[in-house]
């Protein structure tokens, strides 16, 4: 793999962090604007892709800890299931925190209840899963370029 041009690498290095901010914005305002858990999580997962373009696989693999994304995914799924089960006295997935419009104070938890919380949980889960898929597939490329090919030199500054 040949390294991309220095412009592409610098822009990816810079904008990776802004993608996190933008993804968190999309994720947290999913109940009022277009967006939500999946979209925000997918945007946050581009952080890893941008880092892979900017720094190359070896440096990213030495810095990034897979356990963090494992933790994201497990916490997201657990919170999602617990929130779903907490509404069980009425039905599964009953929105026990929400208030009707008349007595709603607006905003995050007082208004929409478990919708926003589940959105955050699914966002965490999607972030972890997509980041791990990207990292694993990239590691698979490196593994498979193994003995008979020359070691990876590209993408590293």
């Amino acid at each position: 793999m040949n390294p991309l041009s220095v412009v592409v690498r610098t822009v990816c290095d810079l904008f990776a962090w802004f993608m996190i901010v933008f993804g968190v914005n999309v994720l947290l305002h999913g109940y009022v604007t277009p967006g939500g858990g999946f979209q925000g999580g997918a945007i946050i997962a581009t952080f890893i892709a941008f880092l892979l373009v900017a720094y190359g696989g070896r440096r990213v693999a030495s810095r990034v800890n897979d356990r963090l994304f494992d933790l994201f995914e497990e916490v997201g799924l657990l919170v999602f299931f617990i929130l779903a089960f907490l509404g069980l006295p009425v039905t599964f997935f009953f929105n026990f925190l929400a208030k009707p419009l008349a007595e709603s104070a607006g905003g995050f938890i007082p208004g929409v209840g478990t919708v926003a919380l589940m959105s955050v949980a699914v966002g965490l889960e999607v972030t972890g899963a997509l980041s791990l898929i990207i990292l694993t597939m990239h590691r698979g490329i490196r593994m498979f370029r193994g003995e008979d090919l020359e070691p990876e030199t590209g993408h590293d500054r």
């Binding site: 999913g30 109940y31 009022v32 277009p34 858990g37 997935f93 929400a98 929409v112």
Partner: peptide
């Protein structure tokens, strides 16, 4: 549930 975004309300509720 006072959710403005109906698509999100359907997906998560």
């Amino acid at each position: 549930i006072s959710a403005e975004n109906i698509v999100t309300a359907i997906v998560f509720d």
